[in-house]
Amino acid sequence: MHIHPIAGVVWYAIGRFYEALDGKVQDVGYFALLGDVEGPLFNGPPGEASAFFTFRAEPFTPQHLTNGDLTVSLDPVGRFTLYFNPEPCGDFSAPESFSVGQPIATLQRLSTVVGTAVGPLSSNLFSAVLCSSEDFHFRGRTWNLGRILPGGITQLGTGSTAALQPPPTGYRSVTAFVGSAMALGGEVRAP
């Protein structure tokens, strides 16, 4: 029996932001927890190369401003897709590897995301609604994220401001982040 609390953590995401040479940014990564999907969620030791569930955002162009010693990033409304890959192949040196497999859900951020960086850390908070979801088969069961997070999510992210070296070809910089999300309640629809 699965108990769904009114407000509870529905995912832990581990990922990276990639800034392309043209200034567009996208984030990719994998999940260490995904609702009540029974694990393990890895095909071997935990990490991007063994993760069955990944995500990739559509590229977006952030705006930047400064407030004292804070650097603020304004990220526009955009979408990201979650994937199930029965043969995990995530590789942070190849961002496209996180969009291999079956698309199982697409979410859209509800508004501009304000990210703040000071010193070695950055943070952001955003909500996203579920636009679509598809059944997928994992460990002998059929799952659908529409049943797990029907109203979408609110995620708090923490990242590093230190660029990882070297960035993949075509990218100016890469930074690491983690995100914890809680399910939104009620009926919320994408604009």
Rank of each mutant, 00 (worst) to 15 (best):
T175F: 12
F136E: 00
P86A: 06
C89T: 15
V9I: 12
F31Q: 01
F55A: 01
S99L: 04
F42N: 09
V188Y: 15
A32Q: 12
S133N: 02
N144H: 02
A105Q: 01
Y12H: 14
S73T: 15
G68F: 04
Y30H: 08
I153L: 11
I104K: 00
A13K: 09
A49F: 02
R172V: 00
G47C: 06
N67P: 14
G101S: 02
F53V: 09
A20F: 10
G179C: 10
V25Q: 11
V118G: 13
F31V: 03
G152I: 00
G115Y: 12
L145H: 00
P103R: 01
S99F: 03
T116P: 07
M182H: 14
L149T: 03
R172L: 10
F126Q: 03
Q26D: 11
S93V: 13
P46Q: 03
D27K: 10
E187D: 14
I6F: 13
S122G: 07
V100F: 06
S99D: 04
P95V: 11
Q63I: 07
N85D: 07
N43E: 13
V28L: 00
T54H: 00
V174T: 06
V72R: 01
L149H: 07
F80C: 01
G151S: 05
H64W: 15
A176I: 05
P88I: 14
L164C: 11
A183C: 12
R172G: 08
